[in-house]
């Protein structure tokens, strides 16, 4: 039966600390300010931190959903800046320890979210664990977040290579964070895209760069998100530009009418390859 489904964007990276959570939460706020109903799903269950960036203390997390104690709707946390958050809950067993039954439950939660919101942003766990791949492959778009340093670059390429070889791989996009000079992000993209095309035969779409900004790295807990406190700073403007590019590349980030299986079925399909 045809049904409406939100645009689902997964933010992934081959290496930790590239700024996935920062980008996810910032873009969520920016999207909310454009009148969209946005939910952020923090799937980095082991080291979830999206709630810290939003400055909220969730009562319920994904763990409560997995335990069957609350529904997905009940587990959502409203953030002061608009987007809803399904927190991952730091310190709980990592997603890789979840069994197929739990992942099936995650799939059903995702289905409910995709039908209830306009945009679902997934803060994926870093690395190439099966659960990270699962979340990325269930999305409609994947934004690989990397830094221009060689370690992050090789890990990002490994992730792109791995994802592109999976059946049902969504479109891959690249965001370069913490660039030292303007334009370095584009250069990084061009090289990475060339290597990806040459060796893996996959295409990348560039969504933009975010400059290295001490205001981001030195930000303390409890402070408002940069997009709220300094909406005209260069990082906030870069985020706005990135969002505009994403909307161009991702069909406006509009919900779609889904005639086939939804995100739950895509997840289950990938789950069958666990």
């Amino acid at each position: 039966m045809p049904h409406r489904e939100a645009a689902v964007v997964a933010f992934a990276s081959g290496k930790g600390g590239t700024g996935k959570s920062f980008l996810t939460t910032s873009l969520a706020i920016a999207l909310h300010r454009r009148g969209r109903r946005v939910v952020v799903v923090d799937c980095d269950f082991g080291l979830a931190n999206a709630h810290l960036l939003f400055g909220v203390k969730p009562v319920y997390t994904m763990r409560n959903v997995l335990d069957g104690g609350v529904t997905t709707e009940q587990s959502l946390t409203a953030t002061p800046h608009g987007p809803m958050l399904l927190a991952g809950g730091s310190g709980i067993a990592s997603l890789c320890e979840l069994d197929a039954g739990h992942m099936a439950l995650v799939a059903r939660s995702m289905q409910w979210l995709a039908r209830s919101f306009d945009v679902v942003l997934i803060d994926s766990p870093a690395g190439l664990a099966p659960q990270a791949l699962l979340m990325a492959l269930a999305a409609t778009h994947v934004v690989v977040v990397t830094n221009p340093e060689i370690a992050a670059l090789t890990d990002a390429y490994a992730l792109i290579k791995c994802l592109s070889r999976q059946p049902g791989c969504p479109e891959l996009h690249l965001a370069v964070n913490r660039v030292l000079e303007p334009g370095l992000g584009l250069l990084t993209y061009e090289r990475l895209a060339a290597v990806s095309k040459q060796f893996s035969g996959c295409s990348l779409h560039y969504v933009g760069e975010i400059a290295e900004d001490p205001a981001v790295t030195h930000r303390r807990l409890g402070q408002e998100p940069l997009l709220v406190s300094h909406p005209t700073c260069r990082t906030s403007l870069a985020i706005q530009r990135m969002l505009a590019t994403m909307q161009q590349q991702m069909a406006g980030l509009e919900p779609i009418v889904c005639t086939g299986g939804g995100i739950d079925q895509r997840m289950t399909a990938q789950l069958a390859r666990w």
Partner: peptide, 30 residues
């Protein structure tokens, strides 16, 4: 889960040997 996915036709695009970029491939699976 594997069997369920198979019966429900959810493994169709997983059985494609070549990678298929683009969400259309995934969406059209069912």
């Amino acid at each position: 889960v594997r069997r369920y996915a198979e019966l429900a036709g959810l493994r169709s695009h997983c059985s494609v040997a070549a990678p298929t970029n683009g969400v259309a491939a995934a969406r059209g699976s069912s």
